[in-house]
Design a protein around this nucleic acid. Structure first.
Ligand code: MN
Ligand code: MN
Ligand code: ZN
Ligand code: ZN
Lengths: 149, 149
DNA sequence: ACATAAATGCAACATTATTACATTTAGATT
DNA sequence: AATCTAAATGTAATAATGTTGCATTTATGT
């Protein structure tokens, strides 16, 4: 059962010539199970049995391989999210909106909201764009509506 | 002469009911003298005689008062830039493009490039937007052109 | 089953940031 | 000009985040 559940992640690791280790599979299954990014502190506390350094190394390879991407939230905290664009070895295309909820602190990757390519002042050569927004996520805006009644 | 040069900054501190101290004036004059943001590490090394804690406190009040705003660069390093929008006590409106040069690491506030207000998925209530771009700044793109010849 | 590169664990260290408390100072009051 | 006091600074201690070097273990190909 746990075997079956991890099958796709094992394939994913294979594809990237990474060894299938317990730590890596757990990180993948945690990140793929959520629709928001996961903060480094969260990862660290959930995976507290995995050594901190190992965790950093796992996150770094995953990022290099184009499996996940790193997003800093409004507090400068590192968050990691699964790539849904076709990212590859040192080539990311995660140019979507990152929504940071000021209440629950969750970071949402809104893949559908792509960047409007705009014209920069003379001399600036842009290679990539990222869009940030902050405010209330659906869950928290619903809650605050209820509170107000 | 140094007196004259600091006059506007003394006025600024006055306006915000902040005492005119040497440290604060130096931070202001450094940040206003540049057209890019200043990173925390840079500030710390330039102002190495000012205690680190004091520096953090200065940056924090300035941010609260709406004198400067904080921007995290691609490496998650805190950068601080003068506000050119009409920001005030706990009310920032710095919704412009932040350009992070991958070569010189400088962060430019491109105030003229405002956010295209876009429609978010159901439930998301955005309060503010920020736009990030990375690539080469004018100085660095010029240099890399020269190199290529 | 064996060999080996890859992955992990561990210790030490660096940087960034915050808190509590003691001391100093800017600016107001007399 | 001397005095007062809230505000600002300094100092020490601690926490959180991230990196490096090296020893040990393990996944995987043979
Ligand atoms: Mn994303
Ligand atoms: Mn800015
Ligand atoms: Zn929320
Ligand atoms: Zn540059």
């Amino acid at each position: 059962m746990a075997q079956t559940k991890n099958f796709r992640f094992e394939e994913l690791l294979d594809k990237h010539h990474l060894k299938k280790t317990g730590a890596r599979l757990r990180v993948l299954s945690m990140m793929y199970s959520k629709n928001t990014a996961t903060s480094q502190p969260d990862l660290e506390s959930v995976m507290s049995d995995i050594d901190r350094v190992t965790l950093y190394r796992i996150l770094n390879v995953f990022e290099e391989k184009g499996i996940i991407h790193k997003v800093f939230d409004l507090n400068g905290t590192a968050n990691y999210a699964v790539c849904h664009s076709d990212c590859g070895e040192n080539h990311h295309h995660d140019e979507h909106l990152h929504f940071n909820c000021t209440n629950c602190k969750n970071v949402y990757c809104l893949d559908d909201l792509h960047m409007p390519r705009l014209t920069l002042p003379d001399g600036f050569k842009a290679e990539s764009f990222t869009l940030y927004a902050s405010g209330l996520c659906p869950k928290c805006s619903k809650k605050s509506n209820v509170m107000a009644n």
